[in-house]
Amino acid sequence: MKKQITVTVNGEQHTVEVETRTLLVHTIREQLRLTGTHIGCDTSSCGACTVLLDGKSIKSCTVLSIQADGKEISTVEGLAKDGLHPLQEGFKENHGLHCGFCTPGMLMRAVELLEKNPNPTEEEIRWGISGNLCRCTGYNNIVKAIQYAGAKMRGEETPSTEPEFV
């Protein structure tokens, strides 16, 4: 069963025809060709497909495209405005990514995390990204990256990005 939906993605309006069952992640990736949003599991466990729906981070593999009709979606492709977003910069400066596959979902989740809690503790960050699996980094540097972005967005001096060795 096909339906027409209109969504605003990264500020641009699109009208697309979808099946009622089409998952939002497939509309984003295959119809809108924004392939930065990834699919890592079937069970809403990994968070690689995280995007913002009306400003809230959600897992687009577990939302129907028709549920997004009339709504605003932000994906990783829309994050950088004038140069890298502070979170993107934080991830780069702190080596918060290896293979890059979980990164877009991690970034979009962190956007909402910092919006709600501009100065989170390490503990709050760890719980805040607990819906996003990363198999490469061991999370240490993702925590640092989000702290760095938080400082930058608060207009404070960013912490050192040199690796700390004992």
Binding site: G36, V76, L79, K92, L97, G100
Partner: peptide
Amino acid sequence: EDDRFLQGKGNY
């Protein structure tokens, strides 16, 4: 390699 991964421009 980070710039492309961070901006959703990786090619998997």
